[in-house]
Every structure is written in C-alpha cells, then in structure tokens.
Design a protein around this nucleic acid. Structure first.
Length: 469
DNA sequence: CTATGGCACGGATT
DNA sequence: AATCCGTGCCATAG
C-alpha cells in the first residue's frame, strides 16, 4: 500500500503537504540541516552520488549534456535553462568567505560560531591566550560583533589591553573576516585590509568606510561625493564594491540569516539560494538558472532497506515500515519542492528577463497571486517559496527573491533617476507631477516616502549636482 | 504660505 | 487573519 503511495505523483496526505510547505520555505542552509538530520536519523534514506560534468564539476541534470559548458541542443535563446545544482559549486564571490575551506564552511554552521573560530586560531595562540579568546568569543552578538569593550576583558583577566588587542586581531582575521569587531565600521575595515592582500581595492573605499559610512548607508551619494570632493560616479562604483565584497555583520556570512538586515545598512547577502547567469557568461546566450541544492547527489529510499523489510521479524517490520514511510515521504516532498521552485523560477525568469538583464527599471510589477494562478498552486505556496530566499543575478549582485515582486521598486528607481538628472532641486509636488507624466500615478506624500527610502535629502537641502565638472 | 515629516487609516497582498 | 503599502490630514519648520 505504501508502495503505491510512494509511486504516486500527487500529494495525497496532509503530512505530505505540510512537509512540502516547510521545505519550500527553507533557504539552502536550513534545507541542508534538515536533510542532514533526516539522513542520519533514518536508515531508510540514502544519498547516491551523481554524475558531474567533467569540465565544470556541476551535477548533470539527468541525461544529456551539461547545460553550462556546452549549450543544450534545442534550447532557444529566450528559454532559460533551469536546473538543480549541488552545493559544492556555491559561487563564492567575496573575498572573505575564503577559498581555502569549502567543506569547513558547511560543517561550520552545525557547530556554533565561537567553536568554529577557535578551531581555526587554536594553534596560533598560547594556552592562556586561548582561554581569553574563548571568553571574548562568547561575548559576540548574533551578528558576530563584540558586545563588551576590550578593556573589560583585560581587567577581568588582569592583563594589558594590548594583549587582548593582539588576540582580537588574530580572531578578526579568521574565517568570518571581521568577526569580533566592536562595530560594523571596524569589521568592514578589517575586511578591506584582508581583501587588499589578494586583490587591488579602490583607494577610496577605505576613506568612505572610515568617514562616510553613515552617509553611505543612507545612500546619500551626492552628499558624500561633495564632502569628499570626488565625483558621484566614483562614489557609486565604490559603494557597489563595498556592498559586493564586504559584510558589516561577519556572522551572517555563516548562518544563512533569514532576518532582514537592518534597514539603513548596506545590504549584503551571502550564498544565494538561486543563481542566474548567462550560459558561459555570454550575454548572447540564454539564461541559466541554478537552484542550489545543499547536497551532492540525489536522495532516495534505499532499495536494500525495502527488501530487508520483507524478511524481517514482525516487530522490526513495524518499526522499519514507519522509517520507510518517513523516508519516502521526505524524498517526495523534496522532489516536490524542487519541482515547484523550478517551475516558479522558470516563469519568473521569462517574465522578468528585462529586470534580470538590464536592471531595476525594467522590473515588471507583478504579484505572487498571478504566479500562483499560472502555476496552479496555492498563493501561500508561492509566498513561502519566495520568502527569505536570495538570488544572484548575472551582474553578481545578490538580491532577495521577493524583489521580483516588489510593486514599488520600479517607481522608486525612476524617481531616483529623475532626481539624479534634475537640473534644479525639485520639490516633492513637482516630482509627483513629473512622475505622473511618465505614467506613474503616485501621490505627493508617496514621493516623499520613496525619497526617504532611497535616502535622498529633501529638495531644499539638495544642491544642483550637475556641474561639478 | 509652501514643503516635509509623523501618525494613522483602509485597502490590497500574503 | 496578519501584514504591508499608499495616502490623507495635520503639525511643524523654513
């Protein structure tokens, strides 16, 4: 009977439905944990290795050629390729999640951050120092920042502050680079320092982090440009660099953090759940969408287990049967999840191609409800699938998946654009009428709101920034 | 008097 | 049912 259930393709039980829901809403990191625990708890589950592409080491989606290195035969350019990708090709685009320890990255979120850091720096320290390091590491907040002043630790152990400083210095340069800093600014500076060893960094970056972070956070580019006496263009590019490469909250590169970053901070996401890129990085080609799966291979019910159950004693049989049921349910739910994600992202990619390729202005406003109807699933399914997931676009920016559904984003970008091109500071009322002419009907009050969302100063405090040349 | 920001309400979305 | 978002009204600053 349960064999029939396993074969069946449609969700039948409420348990199934519930589990699919939870799986859907999970990010890669959460999903990995879930799978791991399920795998170790349930003997009926097994993980089978899959074929990898010899060139790029990606998991091959079933039969056929690798969709990444060699173009699939009959894919049209407009049709994005969607496939499930294993975790080991996580695209690490920032210097601080370093390249030297990919496996450790995964095990690390199982153990807690202090232990993880301590393990790295263990041999560098004397026994005494190690204790202090451990103490220091227990006083981190959830973002990986230090909650108590160094002096306090020094007093606690009756040692000079400089000694604590040395220890902290070592900790800061360990894997979540910048961890145990006293402020986000300090964390960023350390990250910059480390980054500078491997690649050139814009010389402005340091200055901005040091002196202009508050302005940068509020996106007050014009202000910042003025106070540092450099062009707006430079500020923009450096700000891009910062948000691409640095992370004000070191711990968040470790735990896939579902919480929204504080609203007035540079948004940095690590480890996207989905990666969208061009085939072979060539904009001519079709889009490739990878849905990251946190395991290398395919999960399935162990067929041997299925056999064994036939010959087992009656009592064992019952216990095993429940394991088997659980296992097959889990596998099915996982498939369901992947299937839904795949279909959803395919549709999203088709609809929002302009946004993906050309940028924010081309975002088509659309609601989750529309997709739900198209894909014939419940609205809440889409909501769960979209919530707390991140996407990496071809331009290497990482954005929340929900921004594909943001109704106001395009208006905001147009507004931003208008203000940056304005000859003289326009008042909110004027901006509202201008926007109306372009087909965006928004109230004056709303313009004000968007303005502050974008961190743009009110008209009378703005200056006509069109002639700094 | 004009331009903005705060608070709060209602309708849409999730 | 809970939440988010646009908007209107009003107080305040310039």
């Amino acid at each position: 009977m349960f064999q029939y259930h396993y074969q069946s393709l449609r969700p039948l039980t409420t348990a199934h439905l519930a589990q699919t829901m939870t799986l859907l809403s999970q990010t890669v990191d959460e999903l990995r944990q879930q799978i791991e625990s399920e795998l170790s708890a349930n003997p009926a589950l097994e993980l089978i290795e899959e074929r990898y592409c010899p060139h790029c080491h990606r998991l091959l989606p079933g039969k056929g050629t690798c969709p990444v290195c060699s173009r699939p035969q009959n894919a049209s350019v407009d049709e994005p390729v969607v496939f499930i990708s294993p975790s080991d090709d996580f695209y690490v685009h920032s210097g601080e999640t370093t390249e030297d320890m990919p496996e450790d990255m995964y095990s690390s979120s199982a153990e807690d951050l202090p232990a993880y850091v301590l393990r790295q720096i263990g041999m560098e320290l004397e026994k005494q120092d190690r204790i202090m390091a451990a103490y220091l590491l227990t006083h981190l907040d959830e973002d990986g920042l230090l909650t108590i002043p160094l002096i306090e630790i020094a007093q606690y152990y009756h040692v000079p502050v400089s000694r604590i400083e040395n220890i902290r210095h070592i900790i800061q340069h360990a894997d979540p680079v910048g961890v145990a800093s006293s402020s986000t600014k300090e964390a960023l500076l350390v990250q910059l320092e480390v980054l500078a060893e491997t690649r050139p960094i814009p010389n402005l970056a340091r200055t901005i982090v040091e002196h202009g972070m508050d302005m940068l956070c509020r996106h007050q580019y014009a202000e910042l440009a003025h106070s540092l006496k450099v062009s707006l263009r430079q500020i923009k590019s450096v700000s891009q660099f910062i948000s691409d490469n640095l992370n004000p909250y070191p711990a968040r590169s470790h735990y896939g953090d579902a919480r929204q970053p504080a609203k007035d901070d540079v948004q940095v996401y690590h480890r996207p759940d989905i990666i969208i890129s061009f085939l072979n990085d060539d904009p001519q080609n079709s889009l490739v969408i990878e849905i990251i799966l946190p395991i290398n291979g395919t999960l399935r019910v162990n067929p041997l287990f299925r056999q064994a159950i036939q010959q087992a004693d009656q009592e064992k049989k019952d216990a095993w049967k429940s394991d088997l049921d659980r296992a097959s349910l889990f596998v099915k739910c996982l498939q369901q999840r992947n299937n839904t994600m795949q279909r959803l992202l395919f549709r999203v990619a088709v609809e929002q191609k302009g946004y993906i390729v050309f940028g924010e202005e081309y975002l088509k406003p659309m609601t989750r409800a529309q997709f739900a109807k198209e894909l014939e699933v419940h609205e809440s399914t889409i909501s769960r699938a979209v919530a707390s997931k991140t996407v990496q676009l071809p331009n290497k920016r990482i954005i929340p998946l929900s921004s594909f559904f943001d109704r106001s984003l395009n208006v905001r970008t147009v507004l931003r654009d208008m203000i940056s091109k304005e000859a003289r500071p326009l008042s909110d009322t004027e901006l509202a009428t201008q926007l109306a002419k372009r087909g965006y009907l928004v109230a004056r009050r709303t313009v004000a709101k968007y303005r502050s969302m974008e961190g743009i100063l009110p008209a009378h405090l703005r200056q006509a920034h069109t002639h700094p040349t």
